[in-house]
Design a protein around this nucleic acid. Structure first.
Lengths: 226, 226
DNA sequence: GTTTTTTGGCATCACTTTTGCAATAATTTA
DNA sequence: TAAATTATTGCAAAAGTGATGCCAAAAAAC
């Protein structure tokens, strides 16, 4: 993968930090996206699917830990590396951060050279992961890179929302996902869509993968059965 | 679960690989067990019940595919994650591997960082899956996640209210729940439903789970007996 | 332009609650 | 104690409620 194809999402509420870090990374040739608080960060992460997210721990609206937890729940972002920005010596946040699914830490104050080399190191992993990233769940093979599902030897290309919905349901076969959960994960907490949206997508999936794979639990939600 | 409680079984015939991979994983704090061929791997897997098995595809004695198939047949190992070690571009083994029940792939040549992060990602899944929200009460298994009740080996899907009611009663077998209590818990204090509502639901449960399981205590309420 | 996503309106179905009455148990009274 | 009275629960069917399926069309994304 070329450098210019690598997206880095920067989330911090201090414009100064955003500027200095963003400048250094752009200079290195990376694509930099910024957000000023956790919820905006989560939103952009879902939209852009960056390769690396640098998250400030302390932010208004939604802090980094919380943002990271949400990000980690999104299957599309499972390959995304999350690094926290934290003041040196904040032991507490390190522990909480790793629990939330962080991959690494960058400590303030920020030294451009250190920052850049750390980012390079973190991203090195991507270059080698050009092998298709496939995960098997039950009878399905889910290929997140290609937005493609293999079911019983047949390849099925799914549009994004359908793919995400299936990914979620299939991530835990048998588990009933409540409509709220589904909306949170697939659509995002901020976005509000009408009540009929989910079942329309379920219908499409049923058309494509077979009716029996999706079970309705009235009053609760849907589940994928293997 | 703590890192040092996580067991990883490494199966490869090349001592070099065993060494480098083992070193890196131990360094991360995992418990590493090794085996040098498929049949030894299977043996150790059965004995140790590791959380993750990393299996080389090509080995003398018994190859990874075969070993995986055997492992997958063992119910004790049903929660174990199996990842294959494979040379890049070996498309054939990927397909065969998924068929054999593999969960993921790690490609050679091995880069320690990639390996470690992949292992972390795989095990992340484990943490979540372990907390399956199921409660065993006597002969019943109540699975809140799947909204499903297993009674004497039979799965029974219950409508929401019936499920909640049964959950409550079965939460303390033998205890008599007063009608008020039941209303409070299942229906909520605000909602007011007629007096006959509860026993209608009890009747449904009796139809589905057997008459003797529910005992009426006149003037007081109901109890679930095992 | 095409494809995907969302919406609103209905129809439908499943579940929930009510209703009326019968059956049963508890309590009172003769 | 037996009979009568009263309270409580069981039952079946009917009505009510709300959630879901489905369509076709509009809106948005590509």
């Amino acid at each position: 993968m070329k450098k210019k194809d690598i997206k880095i999402l920067l989330v911090d509420d201090e414009p100064d930090i955003l500027e200095i870090v963003g400048y250094n990374l752009s200079n290195e040739g990376y694509q930099v996206i910024t957000a000023e608080n956790g919820s905006e960060g989560v939103k952009k992460a879902k939209k852009e699917i960056p390769h690396l997210i640098i998250l400030d721990v302390m932010m208004p609206e939604m802090d980094g830990i919380e943002a990271c937890e949400i990000i980690r729940k999104n299957p599309d972002l499972k390959n995304t590396i999350v690094a926290f920005l934290t003041a040196r010596g904040e032991d507490y946040s390190q522990v909480a951060g790793f629990d939330a699914g962080a991959d690494d830490y960058i400590t303030k104050p920020i030294k451009p050279k250190v920052l850049v080399s750390k980012v390079k190191a973190l991203l090195r992993r991507f270059k080698e992961e050009d092998v298709a990233d496939t995960v098997k769940v039950g009878s399905l093979v889910i290929n997140r890179d290609e937005y493609k599902i293999t079911s019983k030897g047949k390849d099925i290309i799914l549009p994004r929302k359908e793919f995400e919905l299936l990914s979620l349901l299939a991530s835990k076969p048998g588990k009933v996902f409540k409509r709220d959960e589904i909306l949170d994960t697939v659509w995002g907490n901020e976005v509000v869509v009408g009540g009929r949206t989910i079942d329309v997508h379920i219908r499409k999936l049923r058309e494509k993968l077979g009716d029996k794979s999706f079970k309705t639990v009235k009053g609760v939600g849907y589940k994928f059965v293997d």
